[in-house]
Write a protein that binds this DNA or RNA. Structure first.
Lengths: 219, 219
DNA sequence: GTTCAAGAAATTTGATCAAATTATTGAGGT
DNA sequence: ACCTCAATAATTTGATCAAATTTCTTGAAC
């Protein structure tokens, strides 16, 4: 309602809110997403909600079921393979590119975010962990100056988020991967290849957790 | 207006039409895309048009300029590098995966599409070439049974399309890459690696054409 | 008297909402 | 088992409001 918030349009806010609900696991895989439901839940009008749903469908975060229904996609083995391939191709590349642009200030910022990740793990606060972990990765990726590839990574995280949340809820937060220490050490040393490898390992661990849960039918 | 077309909602049709306009180069890089303009050009309502624009923005086919305006993005050297990296990673992989699922009927279909490509090149019909070339690639890719990766490829083509059109208009259609013969031969031989290599070469040639034009300031 | 610039009006375009229309689903009756 | 009908939700339109850009005007300086 301020001068600040007045400038940013409702459909952007609505998009961001729905996106975060998906990304941080507030919506379970398979959950139905209805326009009317969001209109009352988010207190927004119909048009902004429609647009948010369309955008997120285009990004793969939501799935149109043909008959006018939309839902959070359920992860399948095939989808996981594809997402894993894309993530393991794109994200290490982004980390490597980011390495060339890292400044001491940025490394400091990443260390502070990693501290938040640790704190969330110690407290077992899963939403906080998911949010901080996401922030760590994308703070790094955005330094790559490669917005096209960052967009692709974002899309993959949106497809991955809901399942990761389910896995976290099962295993507890302390079984979670935190390869960030390795990554930070490589950053400080200016070791691009080492950073790339650390990120690669971090991703692979997350993917393996989800794959395991999937094979056991827990998702 | 039939029972057929009645089932498919206006916003889908509108999306498809606008997408094709971008993909087949009917909109130049940098062109402004206005809601009201499309409302009158496409004869659709405001909401369907808005949704089409949002979807295509989310896919990277359109670019929001901050001040409520939307336009077709202009290709830059940095963007081209990113798109090239993604395409050369994803699309050969899709071709390789598709190789495992190819049937004689599908190969026949691809041969027929390739004949359309050749015909368009001989006639110098650039829109027809772009459309047939697109159809060839995605007919193949869809056989991969990897919808997530196909979505990513689609997004890359949307970013690439407008620039390719400009290059075609400059060089004429006969300077265009057609590595499809190689690809089809590999398909008939059941040679997945050969197919992958042929597609890789085809993409690389297209990327090089655009890069050249970009360096010469022709885009 | 001409030119340039600042500011205000007008026009264009985007954002949002509310109402009317249409499709789908599921229940109840034949 | 099939058909009909009611309920629910999505689609679409048109109206209204807000923002941004362009154009026009006005005033000052040269």
């Amino acid at each position: 309602m301020d001068a600040e918030s007045r400038k940013i349009p409702t459909h952007e806010v609505t998009y961001a809110r729905l996106r975060d609900m998906i990304l941080y696991g507030h919506l379970e895989p398979g959950a139905a997403v209805t326009i009317q439901g969001l209109v009352s839940d988010l207190g927004a009008g119909m048009t902004p909600v429609r647009e948010a749903i369309r955008r997120l469908s285009a990004e793969g975060a939501l799935e149109a079921q043909g008959n006018r229904r939309v839902s959070v996609p359920k992860m399948t083995a095939g989808m996981l393979d594809q997402v894993a391939f894309a993530r393991l191709t794109i994200e290490p590349k982004l980390a490597e590119m980011a390495a060339a642009n890292l400044t001491p200030a940025l490394i400091l910022r990443l260390e502070s975010i990693d501290a938040q990740v640790d704190r969330a793990i110690r407290k077992g606060d899963i939403p906080a962990y998911l949010e901080a972990n996401h922030a760590f990765h994308f703070c790094l990726y955005e330094a790559s100056d490669a917005p096209v590839l960052v967009d692709m990574a974002r899309s993959m995280w949106l497809r991955f988020g809901p399942s990761l949340r389910v896995v976290c809820a099962q295993h507890g937060a302390d079984a979670l991967p935190d390869q960030h220490g390795q990554a930070l050490a490589a950053m400080r040393a200016g070791d691009a290849a080492g950073l790339k490898a650390a990120i690669e390992l971090d991703l692979a661990q997350g993917v393996d957790q989800v794959r395991l849960a999937l094979e056991q039918g827990n998702i």
